[in-house]
Amino acid sequence: MSEAHAAARAAVLGSPISHSKSPLLHTAAYRHLGVDISYTRVEVAEHEVRSFLTQQGQEPGWVGWSVTMPLKAAMVPQMTSTSRRVQTLGVLNTVVVTEEVDGGRSFHGENTDVDGIVAALQHQGITRDEAPSGTFAVLGSGGTSTAALAAAAELHFAEAVMYARNEEKAAASEPVAQRLGLALTVKPLSSLGDDIRAGLLDVVVSTLPPRAADHLVPQLPTSHDSPPVLLDVAYDPWPSELARAWSERSWSVTSGLEMLLHQAVRQVELFTENMWNPAALQNDADHFLMVRKMRSAIGLHEGAEALDR
């Protein structure tokens, strides 16, 4: 293995960052691949983005960064290039770092949150190959909410409803929805329960911060013949009150850990594309084993997650 590979490193950036499980996921993947990439946490506040990129980000060895709140939008203008997906959404969660021949660094922004949401919902049986139909609900209007809209489009939903505390902020996502080919309606969070009761929703993705959805539980009907599937992006604590309420009603629910897993799988593929054993070029059996090891690293078992762990 070359000296450059031996010095390779990656990190998750954000603030606060101490709770992040990304180091567990990435470390398990790199051990499986046999590539020497160290992965750590780096506390970076929103106002520190530019100074990080021009100082610490210029140090040798970086192959990429996972990006979490509050940096998902703030990073975008600082990128050397961005994917079409990031251009559409205006937010990223991944930066691929490349060392140029002149010794400088280029930064490419990508968004693998979309991959994570799509895969987590497919894990719950949400697969749609037919013409666009159905309604996809998003709770919240932050950086992950636009990734949820992109996932809705990729899963062939026809329309989305964004339930938000700040409806004006949520309305700013309408141009994104238009670019994705989604009809978007913005509603207050207080109308979620009535819309579930009326059978208007097929999927609910909560992008609200931990505990921010607790107050929605009393809105929920006690039973429903065809309840929507819930993906609660917040995974600490787990189960959230919303997820617990869904489970108590025997409705389908999956945690943000499932999303976190699959978005990290795609990041690993991006960060190792120039290494001796790129994750994206594994055969199906090896890729499956890598994902299983990553899943085990965060205590996420095959099948539906246990809500009492």
Rank of each mutant, 00 (worst) to 15 (best):
L89S: 07
T82G: 08
P70V: 00
H108I: 01
P70N: 01
R85G: 09
R85K: 14
S81P: 11
D113F: 00
T112R: 01
A74K: 11
A73W: 09
T94Q: 12
N93K: 12
G90N: 14
P77T: 01
V95P: 08
G103Q: 06
A74R: 14
M75T: 10
L71F: 06
E110D: 15
R84K: 14
V101Y: 06
T94C: 13
F107E: 09
T88W: 11
N93A: 05
G104P: 06
V86A: 15
V91W: 03
N111Q: 05
D113V: 00
S106F: 10
R84I: 08
L89K: 11
V91P: 02
D102I: 11
A74F: 09
R84P: 10
Q78V: 01
E100F: 07
T112M: 02
G103I: 03
V97Y: 14
V101H: 07
N93W: 11
T98A: 05
T98F: 00
D113G: 00
M75V: 12
M79Y: 04
Q87H: 06
T80V: 01
V96W: 08
N111A: 02
M75S: 10
M79D: 03
T82L: 13
T112H: 04
N93R: 12
L71M: 05
R105M: 04
V86P: 15
V114R: 03
V97L: 13
D102M: 10
G103H: 05
P70L: 01
G90V: 12
V101A: 09
V91I: 03
A74Y: 07
L89W: 07
G104Q: 11
V76Y: 09
V96Q: 12
R105P: 01
M75E: 12
V76M: 09
R85F: 08
S83I: 03
V96E: 13
G104I: 05
V101W: 04
E99L: 09
V114H: 05
G90T: 14
N111W: 04
M69Y: 02
G104H: 06
D102H: 07
R85E: 15
K72G: 08
V86F: 15
M69C: 02
D115I: 05
P77W: 01
R84G: 13
D102N: 13
T82S: 13
L89G: 05
Q87T: 10
V97D: 14
N111L: 03
L92T: 07
Q78P: 00
H108L: 07
